[in-house]
Design a protein around this nucleic acid. Structure first.
Lengths: 359, 359
DNA sequence: CTGAAAGCGCTTACAG
DNA sequence: CTGAAAGCGCTTACAG
């Protein structure tokens, strides 16, 4: 035995069959007598043989690897909070199918030569998962000119022709509105960042639509737009409350919906400063559980996007694109979930909301 | 031309040389005449030829891939905040050397059969990077029985024989103490979680040592231990302040050092409730910039661990282990950095601390 | 300085 | 049901 590693030849010799036969048994193809199958499998088991994946891939012309393109610079985990959660979901699903997932920094793909076309030419991936925030005009060009299956995670505003999946942001807005109605809140204030952002505007749209469908037109005066930063939101919302101060501040508002955690933090602070309690004086709901919802007091009711599940769905779809390259995928896949917290008076106030996530 | 892809044979034919020659040129080995090199390279360039990495790896017996084992379940990005930052750093460094990095969930490695030994036998990685939190007794057994180069990120308390690197937590404590002294704070309170945690105890040790070396013994009464949760820390610290309330609360304390963000959040809140301002009444410093330091008011002075750079260092070390498998690595590599915020009166109070990270 | 040949460890028509 | 043979696209002694 010349090498430390066992090969298909060792198994074949030991079993007294050809390596073709072993290969067929390994891959469950062709018709091999049950007796042979059993005998060979015993030997495989006994010797602890695992096929050399490099050789398998090379022979098959595949890599069983998916490249995940996203920004991956210092502090990405913090500025782009969903990137890793998505990757974890995709990793989980891919590994179930014998695929690996490799991280490639967006910056790499922008280099001269273009790593993406290098990935294609060097055959180092069977498919590409691209975080929408990593999408650029150049990347889109490459994606279209290249035969490698791809999938954008997050609907691209630039080019709707590509394959993409996204969470249902509109439905998230609907969820929020629905919950508010269920709690008996009718006069609801919506706090969101600039209209231009796609996610934000979809959430708002869903929210407004549901309210309208149920007889409550959301008036412009019940929507507060901020610049999206924490301090900006604080300032804007502070002034909003101050400007319309009556005997009791926000007396005409039942509840507040905050389009993200950062705004939620600021809004909660302002409420605190005005001595407005939640849920006693006013209901409160925010989108996303990360990164700050778990440190709000009291723990808020949340509509969460479920980034991990979007990763799972992305993996599933890219695999089916690899199976059938002609397949087009343009889907709203992942559904939002409502997590009941302490800031709305719902039907079933939980003893302890999402306890496993509380730090 | 039968396939859509160009191979080394196409280049050889086009250039009128053998593929051996092309291979040598591609890999800068052997002695080839300058004229041939130029001609062949022109053709390579013109045809946009990139070697099939699968074939290269197969022929060389390498995979040019590193597997990163860490917990990668839902919400990992939030509960294990450094995992992805480390991966990004490693990914950056590895890609500079033509290596890819694949994520493998810790749970996979615990499965029957043990994915790690499968990785080895299937030759799908040249090296293993293991997040310390993913280390188990079983994994340690496998790591030792297997010839694949490995590196633990974070010093393992279980088995110091493995290869590992870590940040200098003790030095981080020293940094904190040093800064406090520079600011003229002498009576400093230290708030930390249970003693048992390795990182915490190292930070505390460094802190105490530096203070002692400079004539300030940190008395037990100046160390507050909490249970490490946000609410627990709030309660403990609240009671601590209350118990020793004089005319002015914490009048005998110059400054507070909080061992992590979560405790910092609670401490700041208590200070707020007692009307104690920082830095006017008391100095404040916390470790780590993530996940909450950027939303504290005012922005705190921080000793940060630089997880990304640890990933870079990890990649560097694992590559050298692949180069020389006999190499042992047991190093404290990454140095902490002090980020001056608004909560200590340092020599150079910044106009705007770490602005690129403020959400 | 260059090339023919063997080999890396599998898969896959094809023949029997 | 089974096996001999070609092939995947490179690298690497070895010979010249």
């Amino acid at each position: 035995m010349k090498s430390t590693h066992i090969t298909i030849n060792d198994i074949a010799r030991e079993a007294g069959v050809s390596k073709s036969t072993v290969s067929k048994i390994l891959n469950h193809q062709g018709s091999i007598s049950e007796e042979t199958v059993t005998r060979v499998n015993e030997i495989i088991e006994r010797l602890g043989y695992i096929p050399n994946q490099r050789a398998v891939n090379f022979a098959r012309g595949t890599s069983r690897n998916i490249v995940y393109i996203a920004s991956a610079h210092k502090h990405t985990t913090y500025t782009n909070i969903f990137t890793f959660d998505i990757m974890c979901g995709a990793s989980h699903e891919l590994s179930r199918h014998g695929y690996s997932i490799a991280l490639v920094d967006l910056v790499e793909t922008l280099k001269a030569g273009g790593t993406v076309s290098d990935i294609v030419k060097s055959h180092s991936a069977d498919g590409l998962l691209v975080h929408a925030s990593a999408l650029s005009d150049e990347l889109i060009q490459v994606l279209r000119s290249v035969s490698l299956p791809h999938l954008i995670i997050g609907r691209p505003d630039l080019d709707p022709d590509l394959n993409w999946i996204d969470t249902d942001n509109t439905l998230a807005g609907v969820c929020a509105a629905e919950h508010m109605m269920e709690c008996g809140y009718h006069s609801v204030l919506y706090v969101g960042p600039q209209k231009e952002e796609l996610v934000s505007s979809q959430r708002l749209r869903g929210f407004k639509q549901y309210m309208l469908d149920h007889g409550h037109h959301v008036h412009r005066s019940h929507i507060v737009y901020t610049d999206g930063t924490r301090t900006g939101a604080y300032k804007t919302f502070s002034e909003f409350v101050k400007d319309r101060e009556q005997e009791q501040p926000l007396a005409d508002i039942d509840a507040i919906v905050c389009e993200n955690n950062l705004l939620g933090l600021s809004v909660m602070r302002v409420l605190d400063e005005y001595g407005i309690s939640t849920p006693e004086d006013i209901g409160f709901l925010t989108f996303d559980i990360h990164p700050y919802a778990t440190i709000m007091d009291p723990l808020p009711t949340i509509v969460d996007v479920n980034a991990y599940d979007m990763g799972v769905a992305a993996a599933d779809r890219i695999l089916s694109c690899i199976d059938d390259p002609s397949r087009r995928v343009q889907e709203i896949t992942t559904l939002p979930v409502l997590l009941q917290g302490y800031t709305t008076i719902g039907a079933n106030p939980p003893l302890e909301p999402f306890p496993e996530l509380i730090p």
